[in-house]
Design a binder for these strands. Structure first.
Lengths: 341, 341
DNA sequence: CTGAAAGCGCTTACAG
DNA sequence: CTGAAAGCGCTTACAG
């Protein structure tokens, strides 16, 4: 474990100056400061006292205003909190800009916070140069959507197969005109659902009857717009798949406002929250994404890594592990066979 | 700021032994260890490096399994996170058993975590002996329900007046048989609503027509039970006040299942979430508790305290400050005048 | 089980 | 803007 003396030697300066940079004091030549910072990064420097505190897990949350208004994110957190607290760990919530992210920064963050490990809640695609892979070697778990093919420990939802399953179920009920309502496909999960949907429609020979409405956000308002756009008398789909719960709630509200009945006029399958869908009317048939469970699993996975490389931050990393959680179909009352015409 | 030398002197031992206790090493006589721990507590000892880290706020969360499934708690957190993150602070989530809580422990926790300040999300009544009040002198804000009369910085919801306002509104609409559905009144907020409700009914001379159904939890299932219990043909109230959103959602679901119509058969006012109530059918008239805003206000209040006693943890505490957030009535479509009979 | 003393990692007042 | 050196807070190997 590097000390400021090591950093000083590498950067060709004195411990005093390293200390100044470490504490953000002014009055250090920019070039000297840069060399010191580079050395710190390279050697994964961390003040000794940070290394001593290991009673917390760092949780990196996409940095967006109101991100904790998302039921998806808070249910992951809920699962993590229940498990972590029971084991005596606290959670440190920290925003993280997924747009500018690389392994080096990621590692720095964990080291900086003196955490025992790190969770990264992933929503959108993140670019991480593979050449940095070996910089990870710290306990970590990415939760949510697939992050990158190799080198990371991940908990994923099987959105692709869920897209297939939802579509197949509707096809089996006799539906042919089916629409998918989703968030912008820059979001990995929604894109996977879309892919599963389209492939299944194509495979069944109904590609031309597949519609797709997508939005730049996944708020209830967009769900309302989707209903307005899709449920006009002409060309109305007989079934709709909605890729998250907020969209679904808006869609339901607008459908009722339009005087239409679910499932008589249109069948609906919605993704995400099993719990609240029990309370809607009608109770929604759902692809029940195991969001809370993903948080619990993530803690288990992190602990497994901690056991392997104990004795501090070993740079030998354990084999990357990926758990893909299936998304079961829960049939309730919002889906019926297509009325014979 | 006390060092281990001070502790050693006070406890009549050596720094080496203090260090052993500090690090939980075995092989210290229990009596010596006790004296050292007492001295640490008394002098608010904190290792130096903890004092140096001040980029986080500690958030104490009632320790209960699944606590983050509560929309109430996560919306407070959401407001806190948005504000704190913008200012460069992280949030440390830590469970806290409100049943066994005193100022001394509270102070120890803040000190232990090396946080710049502390939020305490309050749900139930907490007993804190007033004699310990002056031990607080650290930046802190209690959020939610009234904690104790003096000595603490608090953000409260004005549940009492909200209870009055909801009741008065229903009375003005001509309702006389009114029921309140609430969580166990050991919860401060629900108790205040109950008090406002009962006083108003009594004041108007309809005490005998006031009903109260309470539950040991506030899950949707309890809301369902409430509907089953209250909405039998005989003695059915013409209006119901529901003291939180989960109860309300369950109540709505069961009402529909029973084939009853809101507001034709029964008017409903629900507390808490304005957002989702827009999506229910009918849109619910609500007492719109400013939950998210309370998180934002809490951060402001904490920062104000930090400005006052900077230079570490001053034991001179600023004057306790209490902000009571009003709960506005938002009229939507679940309340109508009592049908003339 | 405990203390005196050496040591470690970091900081800082001072000199240049 | 920087370094040599003293100092601070804590830890630990050793002796008893």
């Amino acid at each position: 474990m590097a000390t400021i003396y090591d950093i000083a030697r590498t950067a060709g300066t004195s411990p005093a100056t390293v200390s100044r940079v470490l504490n953000g004091r002014t009055g250090v030549k920019t070039d000297t400061a840069r060399r010191i910072r580079e050395a710190m990064e390279e050697m994964n420097f961390q003040p000794r006292w940070k290394a001593m505190e290991r009673n917390r897990f760092l949780v990196l949350i996409p940095s967006a205003q109101g991100i904790l208004n998302s039921g998806y994110v808070t249910r992951i957190l809920s699962g993590m909190a229940d498990s972590a607290f029971r084991m005596g760990f606290n959670l440190v919530l920290r925003p993280f800009d997924t747009a500018h992210c690389n392994y080096r920064e990621l590692r720095q963050l964990i080291v900086q916070e003196g955490a025992a490990g790190c969770f990264l809640i992933s929503l959108n695609d993140i670019y991480l140069p593979t050449s940095d892979i070996n910089l990870i070697g710290l306990p970590h778990v990415v939760v949510g959507h697939k992050f990158q093919d190799d080198g990371l420990h991940q908990i994923l939802f099987d959105d692709y197969h869920a897209g297939i399953d939802a579509t197949k179920y509707l096809l089996a009920l006799g539906h042919r005109n089916i629409a998918l309502v989703s968030f912008d496909i820059s979001d990995r999960g929604h894109r996977d659902i879309h892919r599963g949907f389209m492939e299944t429609m194509r495979g069944a020979g109904f590609e031309s009857q597949a519609q797709h409405v997508q939005f730049r956000d996944s708020l209830p308002e967009s769900g309302r717009s989707a209903a307005l756009r899709l449920l006009q008398p002409r060309e109305r789909p007989t079934a709709v798949i909605i890729s998250n719960e907020d969209l679904a709630n808006g869609f339901l509200a607008e459908t009722r406002a339009m005087g239409l009945d679910i499932p008589r006029d249109v069948s609906v399958i919605a993704f995400e929250n099993a719990y609240s869908f029990d309370m809607t009317s009608p109770a929604l048939t759902a692809m029940q994404t195991p969001v809370y469970a993903s948080g619990v699993e993530a803690v288990k996975m992190l602990c497994a890594q901690m056991k392997q490389d104990h004795g501090g931050y070993a740079s030998t990393h354990s084999d990357p592990n990926t758990i893909t959680l299936p998304i079961p179909l829960i049939v309730r009352h919002s889906t019926i066979a297509r009325p014979q015409t």
